[in-house]
């Protein structure tokens, strides 16, 4: 989904390669692979675009023919789209904020020498290896269940009413699960960044009279700025497409409280069998992802240049 904006950034570099000192024109040699990738990308995209302008519903054989922008207009007028967009941004933003904050905290923490450091590092990375569906099920049934869940048990043991997570705080609950899965990624990237921090800088700051907080603020944080932008960029690309966690836990509900853009596409195309409308939603999702990716790549590129 970010291929077009990435291609723009890579293009100047290809230019350089082409003007290499070799006498042979190397372009024909890369055409096969470019061709495969192009077909790989273009065919689904073209089909999606084509379906999005058709009256195409699996439950209604009479609904045929060219719809023009009908599907788009229908979607854009549907309040569900606005909700889905808002949910997408809330989910992406919230998870990004949580993972970057916790990731930084863990990175600084696990960078310290302590007994069992190796094992502790392994454990903090572990959630990343759990499949999204499995993670969501574990959270839903073992932890967040208002009757049998661990959280409910703790709440009752101190005399509180258990939180009914997926009814009362549906989007937050999904966010917590997704954040749990992505904190390891942020931790991993930021921890390696911490390990590349020059120890002498920290010592120089100590000699300059910087206490722990000042050292974090003036030496560690600036050093982590770049890896944080990279974490944000990569996570955004993946978080725009969160689906499994929602399907397994809330199925987009209650109402459309946890329906994000990918889930809306799924609901339209595969639950309401409206292929045309679903495709139109897909195209909107592609546009959104590309706009986000464009700005991200630009800011990151600028950050990496400086």
């Amino acid at each position: 989904m970010t291929s077009s904006s990435l291609a723009r950034d890579v293009a100047p570099k290809l230019e350089k390669v082409r003007r290499s000192k070799r006498g042979v024109d190397t372009r024909p040699l890369v055409w096969p692979s470019i061709g495969v990738l192009l077909v790989w990308m273009i065919v689904p995209l073209a089909l999606t675009l084509w379906f999005s302008v058709l009256n195409y519903n699996l439950t209604d054989p009479t609904s045929t023919g060219f719809a023009g922008f009908g599907n788009y207009l229908y979607l854009l007028r549907d309040p569900a789209l606005a909700t889905a967009l808002l949910n997408t941004f809330l989910l992406v933003g919230g998870v990004l904020l949580t993972t970057v904050l916790l990731g930084t905290l863990f990175a600084v923490l696990f960078d310290q020498e302590f007994y069992g450091q190796g094992a502790a590092r392994l454990f903090v990375i572990a959630p990343f290896f759990v499949m999204p569906t499995v993670a969501a099920l574990v959270w839903k049934n073992l932890l967040m269940d208002p009757v049998n869940g661990l959280f409910a048990y703790f709440a009752r043991s101190i005399g509180l009413d258990p939180v009914v997570w997926f009814s009362d705080l549906p989007l937050t609950s999904v966010g917590i699960i997704v954040a749990w899965q992505w904190v390891p990624f942020a931790t991993l990237i930021l921890l390696t960044a911490m390990q590349s921090l020059d120890r002498e800088q920290i010592e120089a700051a100590r000699m300059d009279g910087a206490k722990a907080l000042a050292r974090f603020r003036h030496v560690v944080l600036p050093h982590l700025a770049r890896p944080v932008t990279i974490v944000v960029m990569i996570e955004t690309i993946f978080l725009l497409g969160i689906f499994a966690e929602i399907l397994v836990t809330t199925s987009g509900g209650p109402g459309d409280a946890t329906t994000n853009l990918p889930y809306l596409v799924y609901k339209t195309a595969l639950l309401q069998f409206d292929i045309g409308g679903g495709s139109a939603g897909g195209v909107i999702a592609i546009v959104v992802a590309n706009v986000v990716a464009f700005f991200l790549v630009r800011t990151v590129a600028r950050n990496l240049d400086s």
């Binding site: 002498e200 010592e203 003036h218 600036p222």
Partner: peptide, 14 residues
């Protein structure tokens, strides 16, 4: 005391 380090240890963002 003030120390001058082998790697200079300057703060790169300042």
């Amino acid at each position: 005391l003030a120390m001058v380090f082998q790697s200079y240890a300057l703060y790169p963002h300042m």
